[in-house]
Nucleic acid binder design. Structure first.
Lengths: 143, 143
DNA sequence: CTGTGTGCAAACTCTTTGCATAAGT
DNA sequence: ACTTATGCAAAGAGTTTGCACACAG
């Protein structure tokens, strides 16, 4: 509760090492894009596009591999919201989302805000691993 | 509140007509598989498999088309839970789900049971269309 | 050096589409 | 008859994989 409060200030290279991932050029680059601008929701293609935009070169396959490695290491969380394509969230803490279907855009809802009551018992032998709340939004015609 | 209470007793052919869909052999067959056995969660492939299993023949493309037509007509709801493949729910009323990741299995949670509190305001110009709550389950090691 | 990671292209899965044929009203 | 739906095969998106080469420790 004292020295782990500021993981965001830990250098990228360190964070990768702690996660058991060798800090290769590609992984450091991707980690910097992901974790240096606050909470983000990215797809593989978006991230790959950013890499190119920055004038660097990482193959799309490596972007996929890296996103999954980061997810396995707990640096990212994979979101199943859109259905057709996978999104990864750099905010790994407990929180939920607004989803604007028309734009495919996600907005965080902080974890403390929402409370879910009245959950039934899970079936025998099962336990709850995580609760996802997705608040789907549409443009408001009225008003 | 009097004469619309039992849509489940309305003949399939009628329900299709009401939905503005011509009751073709394929649509009637698929609708019967979908709506004659209580609430179901199906993927296109599962449903196609059932058609074959019953000794009938409907192309997979038609299964996809039909599922989307039914969804557009409000007979089904599409679920974005799994990420990789689309699921369709024959229960169109307000309710939520347990999801057992290991098996890809879905279990309904009735609509009244769960209550979500503390929702923040949607961004300006937006309104909430629907709230999805997915309770992800894993096998309980302990106990 | 030695093992891990990367890039590429090909393969794969799920889903959609175009067009000729078939079926519903 | 006239229109809409279906089937097929091919195309398309997103993602994964196999293998030779490159790089971090």
């Amino acid at each position: 509760m004292e020295k782990e409060a500021d993981i965001s200030t830990t250098p990228i290279v360190e964070r990768l090492r702690i996660a058991g991932l060798r800090p290769t050029r590609q992984r450091v680059l991707l980690a910097e894009l992901l974790f240096s601008q606050g909470d983000r929701h990215v797809s593989a293609e978006m991230l790959h596009g950013e890499v190119i935009g920055v004038g660097e070169q990482v193959s799309l396959a490596t972007v996929y591999n890296t996103l999954h490695q980061f997810t396995g290491a707990g640096l990212l969380r994979e979101l199943a919201i859109d259905g057709s394509k996978a999104f990864f969230d750099t905010n790994v803490s407990n929180h939920n989302h607004f989803f604007i279907e028309e734009r495919g855009e996600l907005i965080d809802i902080s974890g403390e805000q929402i409370r879910v009551d009245g959950l039934p018992e899970p079936p025998p032998g099962m336990r709850i691993s995580h609760i996802d709340v997705v608040v789907r939004l549409v443009a408001d015609k009225k008003k």
